[in-house]
Design a protein around this nucleic acid. Sequence first.
DNA 1: TAATTTGGTTTATAAAATAAACTAATTTAT
DNA 2: ATAAATTAGTTTATTTTATAAACCAAATTA
Lengths: 97, 97
Amino acid sequence: MFQPLDPLLHSELRLAIMSLLISDLEAEFPYIKEQTGATAGNLSVQVDKLAAAGYIEVVKTFKGKRPCTICRITAKGQQAFEAYIEALKSYLQIGKP
Amino acid sequence: MFQPLDPLLHSELRLAIMSLLISDLEAEFPYIKEQTGATAGNLSVQVDKLAAAGYIEVVKTFKGKRPCTICRITAKGQQAFEAYIEALKSYLQIGKP
DNA sequence: TAATTTGGTTTATAAAATAAACTAATTTAT
DNA sequence: ATAAATTAGTTTATTTTATAAACCAAATTA
């Protein structure tokens, strides 16, 4: 009846992060922060969780002299995102008579 | 960019409850329990929260000699459910180029 | 060189989800 | 008749989660 919802994706901020990365494939931390409106602390925690799950990878480089954290969605992350959307549909009576 | 998600509906079990009631308008507690696979305790708590928000109303009657708890979605609940779906779409890049 | 800004991380707190334990009445079995 | 099991839930406790506040380090600006 109802498909289980991946708890890693069923979170407003993590879903927003993944949504950005599904479109753009990669993004810098401050950009994600701006687009989601999240605090840096919260974003840092949620990025870590997505990375720990292998849904994104985090690359720390420099942009000139400043640190620059880039987040990139993985194949696993893309699959999980799509599966989450499919699961969601079981709750939204899409195409029910 | 991302629309906020009503925290009352952004919960797997409460969303399932609302999904059932959107289709059927009303349902008995044990039926919801069966369809969602929830434990009675969890269901009782989440039904209370939805009722406290005015998204559903709970009527306690009897069916023969046994108690019978009926949950019914309200107009407010229907509106909230639809608004939630609209908000969700901002995360799912539906119809993005 | 002192203050501020940038780019974060770590830690603490508040809120939420969930299950376990419990209550009460009813039905079934002995 | 009464003991055991089932139904129908509620209450309470525990675990997870989300979130923000506090913090750190380097770079920039005043």
